[in-house]
Each structure stands twice: as C-alpha cells, then as structure tokens.
C-alpha cells in the first residue's frame, strides 16, 4: 500500500474517533464542570452563598486533580476506568479519562468567568429585592455567558490535545495514528497529515467559539 492509500484508509476513521471522543468528553466537561464552577464561585468568600465548608474541600480537590499531569492521571485511572467503563481501551475509556481531567479544568474556567461579573451589578439586582438564587439565574449566568463560551472553547482545545495522548494508552483516533505510523514506523506523510488535520480542527473550534462568544456579548 502506498502512503496515500494508507492515509485514505486510516485518516477518516481516526478523525471520526477523535471527534467523537472530543465531543463526548466536552459534553461531560460542560455537564459537570459548569455546576461545579458555579458552586465554587457561589460558595467562595464574599459571594452569594459563602460557605467555607463546601468551598475549601471542593477547591482543594479540584486543585489536586488539576495538579496531576494528564498522562499520569490517565495511567493511574486505568483500574477505575476498567471498573466503570468495563474496559481500559477504546473510545469509551478515552472519554472517561478525558472527562475526569476536563471537568475540573472547565470548573475552574467557569469559576473565573463568574467572578468577572461586576459585583455592583449583583448588588443592584439584590437591591431590587431579588433572592440569591434569582440573582444567580438572572444575572450571574447570563452575564458571564460570553466568557463561559470562551472558556469552553479553551477546554475543548485542551481536550483535543489530551485526546492525542490517549493514543499511548490504547485510545483510538488521530493520536494513535500519529504514534503507530508517524512515530513507530516513521511515516512522514501520515505524521504531516495528522498534524494538518489537528491544526484544522483547532482552528475550526476556535473560530466557531469566538463567533459564538462574540454573538453572546451583544456589543456588535
């Protein structure tokens, strides 16, 4: 098989695997990261639901999780992955480890976004007689939307980067392709193709995220 035929045969499925893992892990990052971020923000000192008993342990746990480099975390999670997903290789396993690392990542990003909301605005709405929950729903969430979108874009890009590394421990996708053909067999064509596709993917995600964030910002 020529390089070109090999590429045609392998690139499509690998790209599909990467997109699938990326989408699923991003979904979980949003599903769990956003509420966690909101909890971190709201329970922090000087905020609406200030509560050190929730905030301190949660914050420490998230920091600890974020302190472990992804590849080490992924390896150390293998037993847990097997327990929960049933296998430690393949797409589902990759989604699991990627989610575990992306959730605290996005929780922190979201927390930062919430903190950007002008405190005076929150006070203004409280002075209208809003409850604290109403204030979260009517002010904090909608006002931080553009920033939440930007943060989510960064998270997706981090997930794409990490998903390539999953190739080392049995995940499918572009990473695996690059490792087994580009690295182990030193196939330059495949290596370059994978890099080009990854760049295109990143650019597309960033472009789309920027567009969305700008639209949400309501300034143009």
């Amino acid at each position: 098989m020529s390089d070109w035929e090999l590429l045609q045969k392998l690139l499509g499925p690998a790209l599909w695997d990467t997109i699938w893992t990326m989408a699923a892990a991003s979904f979980f990052a949003l599903l769990f990261g956003l509420p966690l971020g909101l909890l971190l923000y709201a329970t922090a000192k000087g905020h609406l639901f200030e509560n050190a008993w929730i905030n301190r342990p949660l914050s420490a746990f998230i920091t600890a999780l974020r302190a472990v480099p992804f590849i080490i975390l992924a390896v150390s999670l293998i037993p847990l992955t097997r327990l929960i997903v049933g296998t430690s290789i393949g797409n589902s396993a990759a989604v699991f480890v990627l989610s575990i690392t992306a959730i605290p990542f996005y929780a922190r990003m979201a927390e930062l976004s919430f903190r950007e909301v002008d405190k005076n605005l929150i006070q203004a709405v409280l002075s209208m007689g809003a409850t604290r929950l109403q204030t979260l729903r009517e002010v904090v969430l909608p006002e931080s939307l553009p920033s939440l979108i930007s943060g989510f874009t960064v998270t997706i890009i981090a997930i794409i980067a990490a998903s390539s590394m999953v190739g080392f421990i049995g995940g499918n996708g572009l990473g695996r392709l690059a490792i087994s053909y580009g690295y182990q067999r030193y196939n330059v064509t495949i290596m370059i193709a994978v890099i080009a596709v990854l760049i295109a993917l990143n650019v597309a995600v960033q472009w789309f995220g920027d567009r969305l964030a700008q639209k949400a910002a309501r300034v143009k």
Partner: peptide, 21 residues
C-alpha cells in the same frame, strides 16, 4: 425586607444594566 427593597428603588452612577438583556 425584600418587599421593602422593591418599594425603595435605586439608580447608580455606573447604571448597572445587564449587558446580556
């Protein structure tokens, strides 16, 4: 006291409007 706050409205130097609405 929430009811009372509704009876006492406020305007601000920095307007404090919601940019998302």
């Amino acid at each position: 006291s929430r009811q009372m706050r509704r009876r006492i409205a406020m305007i601000f130097q920095q307007f404090n409007l919601l940019s998302s609405r």
